[in-house]
Amino acid sequence: GIDPFTGEAIAKFNFNGDTQVEMSFRKGERITLLRQVDENWYEGRIPGTSRQGIFPITYVDVIKRPL
């Protein structure tokens, strides 16, 4: 089901994660935001896939912030 505490964002740019914990994505992908890790990073996942990880806040347009 849908978790009411998650947020939502759209990727503004392609992001290629450097490490296992970073999640790569392509511009235009819809991302579920799980939490804000710190002032620069979100943790999120791509709905319908097993992809999950952290990524820079500046790479996405936030539609709804996670609670």
Rank of each mutant, 00 (worst) to 15 (best):
residue 1 G to V: 12
residue 1 G to E: 14
residue 2 I to A: 14
residue 2 I to V: 13
residue 2 I to P: 13
residue 3 D to V: 14
residue 3 D to N: 11
residue 5 F to P: 10
residue 5 F to Y: 13
residue 6 T to P: 13
residue 6 T to K: 10
residue 7 G to E: 08
residue 8 E to A: 09
residue 8 E to I: 14
residue 8 E to F: 14
residue 9 A to I: 04
residue 9 A to C: 11
residue 9 A to F: 04
residue 10 I to Y: 07
residue 10 I to T: 06
residue 10 I to L: 08
residue 11 A to G: 08
residue 12 K to T: 08
residue 12 K to M: 09
residue 13 F to E: 12
residue 13 F to G: 06
residue 13 F to S: 08
residue 13 F to L: 11
residue 13 F to A: 11
residue 14 N to F: 05
residue 14 N to E: 09
residue 14 N to Y: 05
residue 15 F to N: 02
residue 15 F to Y: 13
residue 16 N to W: 13
residue 16 N to F: 13
residue 16 N to H: 12
residue 16 N to T: 13
residue 17 G to F: 02
residue 18 D to Y: 14
residue 18 D to C: 15
residue 18 D to N: 14
residue 18 D to K: 14
residue 18 D to I: 14
residue 19 T to E: 10
residue 19 T to I: 07
residue 19 T to W: 06
residue 19 T to G: 12
residue 19 T to S: 12
residue 20 Q to V: 14
residue 20 Q to Y: 11
residue 20 Q to D: 14
residue 21 V to R: 14
residue 21 V to T: 11
residue 21 V to Q: 14
residue 21 V to G: 15
residue 22 E to T: 08
residue 22 E to G: 06
residue 22 E to C: 15
residue 23 M to E: 00
residue 23 M to T: 01
residue 23 M to Q: 01
residue 23 M to F: 08
residue 24 S to N: 07
residue 24 S to F: 04
residue 25 F to W: 02
residue 25 F to R: 00
residue 26 R to D: 08
residue 27 K to V: 12
residue 27 K to W: 05
residue 28 G to S: 04
residue 28 G to F: 05
residue 28 G to H: 05
residue 28 G to Y: 05
residue 30 R to G: 04
residue 30 R to M: 10
residue 32 T to M: 10
residue 32 T to H: 08
residue 33 L to P: 00
residue 34 L to E: 04
residue 34 L to I: 12
residue 34 L to S: 04
residue 35 R to F: 07
residue 35 R to A: 08
residue 35 R to Q: 07
residue 35 R to V: 06
residue 35 R to S: 08
residue 35 R to W: 09
residue 36 Q to A: 09
residue 36 Q to E: 09
residue 36 Q to G: 04
residue 36 Q to I: 09
residue 36 Q to R: 10
residue 37 V to W: 08
residue 37 V to M: 08
residue 37 V to R: 05
residue 38 D to A: 09
residue 39 E to R: 10
residue 39 E to I: 10
residue 40 N to P: 03
residue 40 N to I: 14
residue 40 N to M: 13
residue 40 N to V: 14
residue 41 W to N: 07
residue 41 W to M: 08
residue 42 Y to A: 07
residue 42 Y to V: 06
residue 43 E to H: 09
residue 43 E to T: 04
residue 44 G to C: 01
residue 45 R to I: 10
residue 45 R to D: 02
residue 45 R to W: 10
residue 46 I to L: 03
residue 46 I to W: 01
residue 46 I to M: 05
residue 48 G to Q: 07
residue 49 T to R: 03
residue 50 S to T: 13
residue 50 S to M: 12
residue 51 R to Q: 04
residue 51 R to F: 04
residue 52 Q to S: 09
residue 52 Q to D: 03
residue 52 Q to I: 09
residue 53 G to L: 01
residue 53 G to F: 02
residue 54 I to H: 05
residue 54 I to S: 03
residue 55 F to E: 00
residue 55 F to H: 00
residue 56 P to M: 05
residue 56 P to L: 07
residue 57 I to A: 13
residue 57 I to S: 09
residue 58 T to E: 13
residue 58 T to Y: 11
residue 59 Y to T: 08
residue 59 Y to V: 08
residue 60 V to C: 07
residue 60 V to R: 00
residue 61 D to I: 15
residue 61 D to M: 12
residue 61 D to G: 05
residue 61 D to E: 13
residue 61 D to L: 15
residue 61 D to H: 14
residue 62 V to R: 05
residue 62 V to N: 03
residue 63 I to N: 04
residue 63 I to H: 06
residue 63 I to W: 06
residue 64 K to L: 07
residue 64 K to Y: 08
residue 65 R to M: 15
residue 65 R to C: 15
residue 66 P to R: 04
residue 67 L to T: 15
residue 67 L to K: 12
